[in-house]
Nucleic acid binder design. Structure first.
Lengths: 346, 346
DNA sequence: TGGGCTCACGTAAGCGTTTACGAAACGAGA
DNA sequence: TCTCGTTTCGTAAACGCTTACGTGAGCCCA
């Protein structure tokens, strides 16, 4: 006597027997395919319900040739930005019959390993890369998978993508300070987190410098730090230690801005009267810091990415493969008019 | 002439042909099973590498009977707590050959749908529930899946779980204020987010009241709000409007505390001199708010959950199925000694 | 009344693996 | 040299579905 591996699950053959029809009919009835009378279909469906039978996705996919799964690859699940993207993707895919397989590639090592072993290989119908900068070599490996690839929060060759215009975001943030009359404006930017160049920092910097030029303001101070809150703490410290500190600061991200604000609070510098700060993101805690910022629709980007994948899988090439979502200034309390006495309190 | 659905992928039979051996040998060689000479194995592995062939997981799993996947079910991917849990789980599972299938059940509707349709059904070997309160009925449905179920951040019948001691967390937070000499201590708690009772709020409340009793302090004010930052904003407003406001507040979570701090800042109430605040979590931005809090190891809980699942799948029943991780006070700037002039500034 | 159509359903051939079982080859002990 | 045990490998039967194709049954219209 052999013991079944999965004692509980009954299969389609069992169901067919009890329903008194062939397995093919059951398959058709349950999958919604045509070729079954409505009555038979109903009968089978009810029976399946009663016996709480579910079609084995693995077997179905083996037979059909497509997996019904999409892989999401992200550098850091825990981080607000990626988590929000993921959230958007998942909701964008809800309702479709696509499941999400999650891969995190935190460090350079893991990322190399991911592209070498391609664990998602032959497992998914599509791949969504979340703001993951990628080398040409890796792109080639990816194509080897032979699946749809979509980039969310960046670009990737000709592959479909969703993103924001980072140059514009940088412009908007900077313009907000220029408009308020500031003339000594600095930026706490963020590069070098990845060994591969991530596009956002340089794009935002470009927006920053462009606006300053257009306003006829002198080329200004830019410090580079890690793009988390601690980067902001350090960056602002450095700016404060300058002989002639700026009166306004553009932060690469809201988290950087949070850190900057903490430094300012500890240093007793009045915000926005002595120092104005503007971030980029509209982090869900930005309101708690009263932070003026440039909102980028993160969840929506994920959502669009999900829909893009769904569309492509369903009907081939997408209508609009490259989506750029708008950003927009959200004015709160950390920006204000030029201080009357530069450097002095209040 | 028929067109192949997946033109690229070659299969094990192809590989076997080119290697001049049978498909069984290839399978054994690639899976690491015994019964192949080392030389043959090496040869086959090299060939597979050259042709960049990878075993089809679906087919392998169909044949083997286990999916090699684990489902993670969480109420909100974007939220710091769940995202951190997820992060821990993913890292805990890294290195094993288990993939993560992600399911988000945000609203009551979706959650009901999840348990009715069980999309993860027959797709995974195990299920990790992330702080998801569950009814008895749903638990029964779950057992019907016939897979290992692990709870992270809570309990679930006899199923293995990882969590913290929420009563203790509540105690520690409250004790921190009592120790500082506060006598009018309030709590901004959080209930009713789910239709099902979530255990943490009542447990933390219990810790709160117990400490007050032990200290001989009068039963104190407790307001209930949503457990996000806006709940904290509202909760603190309500407390401030009291005829005799407290001098110390325990917040259900750090996010609630963030909101509370914002209200205090806007109201011009000095922290910690006029009002002390302590949170629970040690959110990664807690430091930016200078928030005193009770740290709970979130990522670690996820990590343990992942390891638990891996262990169970590998060797059956786990050695220690119920893990309780310690919490610990982190003192920062939002708590201080009892104000000399209650209610007055500074 | 019969020829052709449509519809509902069954038969069986895959899909790409794993694995029980058996066969061949080889070495060793007697 | 014969026999027995190992080791290495091949054969073929699953695994649980989907789907191309075939077969009757029923229907319509000439």
């Amino acid at each position: 006597m052999t013991v079944a591996k999965r004692p509980v699950a009954l299969n389609m053959t069992d169901l067919a027997e009890r329903a008194g029809v062939s397995i093919a009919t059951v398959s058709r009835a349950l999958s919604g395919a045509s070729g079954v009378s409505e009555e038979t279909r109903r009968k089978i469906r009810m029976l399946a319900d009663d016996l709480s039978y579910a079609v084995s996705p693995d077997a179905a996919r083996l037979a059909r040739g497509s997996s019904g799964r999409v892989a999401v690859v992200t550098p850091d699940v825990a981080h607000w930005f990626y988590a929000s993207m993921l959230d958007g993707i998942v909701t964008g895919l809800r309702g479709t019959d696509l499941d999400v397989l999650l891969y995190e590639v935190k460090e350079e090592r893991e990322r190399r390993r991911f592209f070498e072993e391609l664990p998602a290989r032959r497992q998914v119908d599509a791949l969504i890369l979340v703001a993951l900068p990628i080398s040409d070599d890796e792109r080639r490996r990816l194509d080897l998978m032979g699946v749809t690839v979509v980039m969310a929060g960046g670009t990737l060759g000709d592959h479909p993508h969703v993103r924001i215009d980072d140059v514009e975001a940088g412009r908007q943030a900077t313009a907000q300070l220029v408009r308020a009359g500031h003339t000594r404006i600095a930026m706490i930017n963020s590069t070098g987190t990845w060994s591969l160049e991530y596009a956002a920092p340089s794009a935002r910097l470009k927006g920053f410098t462009t606006v300053l030029e257009e306003a006829g303001l002198p080329a200004s101070m830019v410090v580079n730090r890690h793009w988390g809150s601690h980067g902001g703490v350090e960056g602002m410290s450095e700016l404060l230690s300058l002989p002639e500190p700026p009166t306004g600061v553009v932060a690469f991200s809201d988290e950087v801005a949070f850190g900057a604000l903490r430094t300012l609070r500890r240093a007793g510098v009045a915000v926005p009267h002595t120092m104005s700060v503007v971030g980029i993101d509209d982090h869900h805690l930005a309101d708690m810091f009263d932070l003026t910022t440039v909102r980028q629709p993160v969840t929506e980007q994920g959502l669009v990415a999900g829909q893009l994948v769904h569309g492509i899988l369903q009907e081939g090439e997408p209508a609009a493969p490259h989506v750029v979502l708008p950003t927009q200034v959200v004015v709160r309390g950390t920006t204000g008019p030029l201080p009357s006495l530069p450097g002095g309190p209040n």
